[in-house]
Design a protein around this nucleic acid. Structure first.
Length: 268
DNA sequence: ATACCTGTTTCCCG
DNA sequence: CCGGGAAACAGGTA
């Protein structure tokens, strides 16, 4: 379930382990989440270290550990973080399990699209430092959005919104939510957007990102009532505003959901 | 059985 | 070199 706010919530599930030493580490022998990272090295570097702090940026997470160690974590499509009691026994899809004296921190990812990274150094890794601006930052400006639309003029807006180079943390439901609120058809080409439409998108990106952080990021619940989120998942949903059946179709490589009345492709 | 899925990377095309 | 799109990755669920 991981987009911007769900990632922030998942990350907080490990807060209970901050300031505590790591006694033992379990790594899944087969999971893809390690990519080209050596399991042996990961276990060696994490064991005995103290978990110092955590942070998220879009869908990326970074944990700082004592001894100049840094653990990068991405949840992919089905990843999740939980904490449990010391008597915890590892489950089938547990990729990384961190045992502390009072708590156990679990990273589970059945589909294994997630990713772990290890970095040793006094400062955060380069990949973290070089992440694009966050949608929540003041530096995320209208001109930044305009430039993205100009550069990718031929892409459907839905596809552009999912591009993490510009919209860190945006995922499928957030993009549909933004387009629905801005009343923009997901297939509208980025270069076809009027100045007014671009401004609407810009404002709704900030509204949805902040709103999600407040509701989902705070307590792990769903977004507020009335959001498209609640009706977009399967066929048969009704537009909360226009009260007519929503349309679901693949656009920009992902299933998209929109209101055919509010979100028109052309003026006819 | 079949289709679908809140994500990213890789490969291929023009 | 680039931008854009499809396929691939893998397992659970309906």
């Amino acid at each position: 379930m991981p987009e911007l706010a769900e990632v922030a919530f998942a990350c907080r599930q490990w807060d209970i382990g901050l300031g505590k030493f790591i006694k033992k580490v379990h790594v899944h022998p087969k999971s893809r989440v390690f990519r080209d990272l050596s399991r042996k090295q990961l276990v060696r570097e994490l064991t005995g270290a103290k978990l110092l702090s955590s942070s998220t940026h879009g869908k990326q997470m970074l944990f700082q550990l004592s001894g100049n160690r840094w653990l990068g974590l991405h949840l992919g499509m089905t990843g999740n973080l939980t904490s449990d009691t010391p008597s915890y026994t590892c489950q089938k899809h547990d990729a990384l399990v961190i045992f502390q004296s009072c708590k156990v921190l679990v990273f589970r990812d059945p589909r294994q699209f997630g990713r772990l990274r290890l970095h040793i150094g006094t400062i955060p890794p380069e990949w973290w430092a070089n992440l694009p601006v966050s949608m929540l930052d003041p530096e995320f400006t209208l001109s930044f959005l305009l430039k993205a639309c100009e550069r990718h003029a031929k892409r459907p807006m839905k596809a552009l919104l999912l591009d993490q180079r510009y919209f860190q943390g945006m995922g499928n439901w957030m993009a549909d939510e933004v387009l629905w609120r801005a009343e923009i058809h997901p297939a509208l080409r980025a270069g076809q957007m009027s100045r007014e439409q671009t401004l609407k998108i810009f404002n709704q990106i900030k509204f949805v990102a902040r709103g999600a952080m407040k509701s989902v990021g705070e307590h792990g619940g769903d977004p507020p009532r009335g959001w498209l989120f609640h009706v977009r998942w399967k066929d048969g949903g009704y537009c909360p505003k226009a009260k007519i059946p929503l349309v679901r179709e693949e656009i920009g490589g992902r299933t998209s959901c929109w209101c055919p009345t509010l979100q028109k492709l052309s003026y006819d």
